[in-house]
Design a protein around this nucleic acid. Structure first.
Lengths: 210, 210
DNA sequence: GTCTATATTAGGATAGAC
DNA sequence: GTCTATCCTAATATAGAC
């Protein structure tokens, strides 16, 4: 087996330390310590801690943009939709350090602000596409105002659920269960589903409560 | 007019700087600069920056606990409810620095963690009381599972709406409009209101879009 | 109560040998 | 590519005069 490049080991270790301790609490020394390499070595691979953050963000961005490229004008099934939510929450959870101290992180990395906002916008757009698709299939019935509100709410929840969830387990911050997040998202849409669809959606959402 | 005590001036300035720049970005030097006093003077009044944070938190806690002491077994009207939401969002907005970098702040002030969680729990409880009151008055119709989910969702939104909202205006962070938050909260409950009530609630929520 | 000056870290980052 | 040693800076905090 080819051994993993130091550069990648640094990225992996940083990501997991950021997630469990919070990015501002992780020093370059801690990262190098964790990997049993010298701080100098770390700085050979990355010219600053900020660079590590930016590179991780780029990975996050790529995953998200890929995931969020929901094709318009395509009928989306309930199963596809919940699968999409599942993937989304997994991705967010994997990079949850970004959300846990969002304002702080973005204020120290101004270049990430627009990119983050772009993702956010795309996220809302994706939810809108999904809802409109469901509406076109007569699976969902919702007025325009309510749809706006719902999509905002879905975006908010997609962003902050994992941060909110960790609040309940501030002690062990190693793992996060994305299931409950998906459940909440489904429940946000539930009232607007057509009667028959509602039943189905309820069953699906139940599965996400482990 | 009696001039404000330096100690209080420090608290006020800190709060507003924390809110607009994020607590981790505000140094004790910046605070004293803002007030045209010396850093030494600041440390005469507070033995550490953490103490300032804790004292501000105590104010926040007091306001919240007071606000959240929703009497059980009392019929709550829709107007009272929206007024309550309004007050709640005002309070959260006034201390939004706490929420903007919640994990960070709580991780550096462990003693605040339990207190914060207690408030959170109380918040969920208050929403539950309100919903149950509305249900008792036959103004709301909702199943138990959905109620759990709704109350969690209301709590999440009450916490993070202002942080989410500031994302859209990361440039000017001076003011926050709590209106849209109230609107969202109303819309979360809307689907579960009885038909007649729904109309009324919609009208009320409209008013909150400035 | 307030100031000036200074001590103390801790964290980010570089230099230069191996 | 990796290490050790060191520098630099910014931020918290203290000491002691006024």
């Amino acid at each position: 087996m080819p051994k993993i490049k130091t550069r990648d080991r640094i990225l992996n270790a940083s990501l997991s330390l950021f997630n469990s301790l919070g990015e501002p609490n992780v020093t370059t020394l801690l990262i190098s310590d964790e990997l049993d390499i010298s701080p100098g070595n770390l700085y050979y691979h990355f010219k600053s801690k900020g660079d590590i953050v930016e590179e991780l963000f780029t990975g996050f961005e790529a995953e998200m943009l890929d995931l969020l490229s929901v094709p318009e004008d395509v009928d989306i099934s309930l199963d596809q939709q919940s699968f999409f939510l599942h993937m989304l929450f997994e991705a967010v959870a994997r990079y949850r350090f970004l959300y846990q101290d969002l304002v702080n992180v973005l204020s120290r990395h101004e270049r990430l602000q627009l990119r983050f906002k772009r993702i956010l916008k795309k996220k809302t757009g994706a939810f809108r596409s999904i809802c409109e698709s469901l509406r076109n299939q007569s699976m969902m019935s919702i007025e325009e105002d309510d749809l706006d509100s719902l999509c905002e709410q879905l975006t908010l929840t997609a962003c902050y659920w994992s941060a909110y969830d960790t609040l309940s387990h501030l002690d062990d911050r190693e793992s996060v269960d994305p299931g409950r997040g998906v459940y909440q998202m489904m429940h946000l849409m539930l009232p607007y589903f057509a009667p028959g669809v509602q039943e189905h959606a309820k069953l699906i959402s139940q599965d996400y409560l482990m």
